[in-house]
Write a protein that binds this DNA or RNA. Structure first.
Lengths: 220, 220
DNA sequence: GGTAAAATCAGTATAAATACCGACAGGATT
DNA sequence: AATCCTGTCGGTATTTATACTGATTTTACC
């Protein structure tokens, strides 16, 4: 994929400029990698890739970003330009988020609280057609893999409708209001709430909100 | 405070190692500043400062960290070692968080989505006995200053007890449970809740949770 | 020593959420 | 054909939260 003469080109997408600048500084001494693009949101990143797909070999992206999330960005990239490798940079190590990333066909996933060395390891592995997942999240993947078809699901896979209801709950809507907005009965909303409580193992609406936040299921 | 011969020594506290490494990389070319200490939580940072107060001239710290928050760390530092400058690095630009920082006698406050240039400007200003607050948060400070004594207070200043109750609400406790934990009547908890709803302008408990998150009033 | 805010508690009433029960239609899967 | 999941509703009952009004004590501050 790359030799010493032609470094691997990177595109960094993160809404925190400090992270971008930090990574650029870290890699400034590296001859194997060169950052030749940056974006502060998913849509911007997508435009840059679409404008010149050959310019970017590895996409280093945050999960939660404005306009377009990292996972959505990843999906689009993998669909259109499967040659581009995607490495996620995330704050969260929750099972659901990791699972989302894997389903989006990510090549790697590292946490922001890891250091320079691990970043370089990840980039090396990924640019050589490998994958790299932080040590902290490997157990999550393992557990996920082995419990996938059990309904125990501490992670819970919510249906589309349930996610819709949850998003409105987080927006401070009452069941009545949600019913009106979705053109369904309040009773149906209650049923969805009950299922959400089960799947998220929450005790109350507050728990649902926490669940939504941790799993990136609501706009913030 | 410093000349070209003796660079300004920095201590960085952030639970995201990547931020620390990023800043170190950014400053590696700078002769004016030298990072000679790092910590991943507030307590660790405090230990390092207490161990050798002369080693650190500027403390660069995150707001939300495990064990001890950045604001608490700042308070202790300013109380014991007022010569140490404190620059906050934060994800949030909410009025309440900024106010907390200012009340803790911070010398500066910059957002993580700002870049290398602004970081250097901030460090220069602060190390020369000045202050530096990100452009984005200046309006917040201004507004805060002028609306301080009005009860309109879109930010709301919660009492210690109210914060205590709010923290438990976010932890999925019911009013009953909160009452038991704080050894007060459920009725009193209800009163606190009512005041919290007023001050936060929330419609329900969900709104309180959002408020707590946005203002960094609950552990996450 | 007065004033203001905070913290405490009570009563009453309504609104909202949760816990159960049961049901049925449609779609996908086996 | 049988099964499972999703989405859709209804009834009933209980628990929790919210909206009022009003009150006392403590604390802090001027």
């Amino acid at each position: 994929m790359s030799d010493l003469q032609t470094p691997v080109s990177l595109l960094i997408a993160d809404d925190h400029q400090m992270i971008i600048d930090g990574i650029k500084s870290m890699l400034s001494g590296e001859r194997h990698f060169v950052v030749n693009g940056e974006a502060n949101n998913g849509e911007d990143a997508w435009s840059r890739i679409a404008a010149d797909p050959g310019r970017c070999q590895v996409l280093l992206t945050d999960i939660s970003m404005p306009l377009m999330s990292g996972t959505e960005l990843c999906r689009k990239v993998k669909e259109q330009y499967p040659h581009i490798k995607v490495l996620f940079l995330s704050m969260y190590n929750s099972t659901a988020v990791v699972k989302e990333a894997v389903l989006a066909e990510a090549d790697g996933y590292i946490l922001k609280n890891t250091g320079k060395d691990e970043l370089l390891s990840a980039l090396h592995r990924i640019s050589q057609d490998g994958t790299y997942f932080s040590q902290e999240i490997v157990p999550l993947l393992y557990r996920q893999y082995h419990k996938e078809q059990q309904q125990s699901a501490e992670t819970a896979q919510l249906s589309a409708r349930e996610k819709e209801v949850l998003a409105l709950i987080v927006k401070e809507c009452t069941s009545e209001e949600i019913a009106q907005k979705l053109f369904i009965s309040k009773k149906t909303v209650d049923t969805h709430r009950a299922h959400l409580l089960e799947k998220s193992k929450a005790r109350s609406t507050v728990g649902l909100v926490r669940f939504a936040i941790k799993n990136g299921l609501a706009e913030w």
